[in-house]
C-alpha cells in the first residue's frame, strides 16, 4: 500500500509540474506572439545567449564540437560561433510556434523542382540549421502532404497545433508506431522530411573525420517506398528572411529499383553526411553545436 501511495504522489507531482510548465509556456508564447517581429527576434536571441552563458556544460560541449569540426579557428572565434549559433537556434526553435506566419524562399535545381512538383512524394533528409521546421513548411508550397516527426514536450499541449495551423502533419517521435505511420504516408505520396543530423544508434557515419552513428530512417523510407531521396536545409539571411534549399540525392526516375541495387543505407548516409559537413562549414553560426553529437556507446 505505501508503494502505491508513493507512486500516486509522484504522478501528482509530475502532473502539477506539467500544468505549471504548460501555463508558463502559454504565457510566454502569447507574449512573444504579440511582440513586434524585430523585438521578438532580438529578445529570443538575447535569451539564447543568456542561457548559454549560464549553462557551462552546454557551452563547453558546443565549443568542443566546434573545435572538432573547425580546428583552424582560434578559441575566441569558436566561442563567438557557439554563442551566435545558440542564439540563432533559440530563434529557429521559437519560430516553430508561429510557423503559419513564415514565408520561406525556395531554391533548387530543375530536376529537384520537378520532383517537388510531381505530387508523387519524396523522402527528405534535413538538419538542425536555421529555422528547424522551415523545410516541411516550404514543402507545402508544392504539396498539401507535408509530413514530419516531432518531439513536442508533454506539457506543451498546443504543440502539434502549430504544425496543424501550417498544414503540416506532425507525428510524435515517441509513438511506438511512428515509422509505420510514416511508411503509410509514403504510400499516399506524401513528402516526408526528417532531421537526421543528430545522434542515433543506427547507422555508422563519418562526420568531420570522426566515426559516429546517425538516424537513417529517412533513407530506409526512401528505399522501401522507392521514392526519391532529397536533402533540404534552411538558413536565415542577413535581412532575417528564411531561405530553404532542396537538393536531389537519389532520383527514382532512372529505375524503380535503383535505390535498392545501387547504394546501401550506409552509402546514402555517407553522401548525406558529406553534404551536411559542407553546409555546416558554410553556415557555422546557424547549426546546433551544443548537442552531444559524437557520443560513444559501449
Amino acid at each position: 500500500m505505501p508503494i502505491k501511495a508513493s507512486t500516486q504522489q509522484k504522478q501528482k507531482t509530475v502532473n502539477l509540474k506539467h500544468a505549471l510548465l504548460s501555463v508558463l509556456a502559454k504565457m510566454l508564447i502569447t507574449i512573444l506572439r504579440i511582440l513586434p517581429a524585430k523585438v521578438r527576434k532580438s529578445s529570443i536571441k538575447q535569451l539564447g545567449r543568456f542561457i548559454l552563458h549560464c549553462a557551462k556544460k552546454t557551452r563547453s560541449r558546443a565549443i568542443n564540437n566546434i573545435q572538432r569540426a573547425l580546428p583552424d579557428l582560434c578559441f575566441n572565434e569558436m566561442k563567438q560561433i557557439a554563442f551566435d549559433a545558440y542564439a540563432n537556434c533559440a530563434f529557429g526553435v521559437a519560430e516553430s510556434l508561429w510557423l503559419d506566419q513564415l514565408d520561406p524562399e525556395i531554391y533548387c535545381d530543375e530536376a529537384t523542382l520537378e520532383i517537388l512538383q510531381s505530387g508523387e512524394g519524396a523522402c527528405i533528409a534535413t538538419m538542425h540549421l536555421g529555422c528547424y521546421e522551415a523545410v516541411p513548411l516550404a514543402i507545402n508550397k508544392f504539396s498539401g502532404q507535408s509530413v514530419t516527426l516531432t518531439n513536442v514536450p508533454d506539457f506543451l499541449e498546443q504543440g502539434l497545433q502549430f504544425y496543424a495551423k501550417a498544414k503540416i502533419t506532425a507525428i510524435n517521435k515517441n509513438d511506438n508506431n511512428a515509422f509505420a505511420q510514416l511508411l503509410k504516408h509514403t504510400t499516399s505520396n506524401a513528402y516526408i522530411s526528417l532531421h537526421c543530423d543528430l545522434y542515433a544508434n543506427q547507422t555508422p557515419v563519418n562526420f568531420f573525420k570522426q566515426t559516429t552513428k546517425a538516424p537513417s530512417g529517412v533513407v530506409m523510407l526512401a528505399k522501401l517506398s522507392k521514392k526519391p531521396l532529397l536533402l533540404a536545409y534552411s538558413v536565415y539571411q542577413a535581412d532575417g528572411s528564411i531561405s530553404v534549399f532542396f537538393e536531389t540525392i537519389v532520383s527514382s526516375n532512372n529505375s524503380e529499383i535503383q535505390l535498392n541495387q545501387d547504394k546501401s543505407v550506409e552509402d546514402l548516409m555517407d553522401i548525406i553526411y558529406q553534404r551536411f559537413e559542407q553546409i555546416i562549414q558554410q553556415y557555422p553560426s546557424q547549426w546546433y553545436w551544443s548537442y552531444n553529437r559524437w557520443r560513444i556507446r559501449s
Binding site: N176, N177, A178, F179, A180, Q181, L183, G217, M220, L221, K223, L224, N260, V265
Partner: peptide, 10 residues
C-alpha cells in the same frame, strides 16, 4: 518496433 520493421523489409 516500426523502425525495425523497415529494417526487416529491407
Amino acid at each position: 518496433k516500426s523502425f525495425d520493421f523497415m529494417m526487416l523489409m529491407l
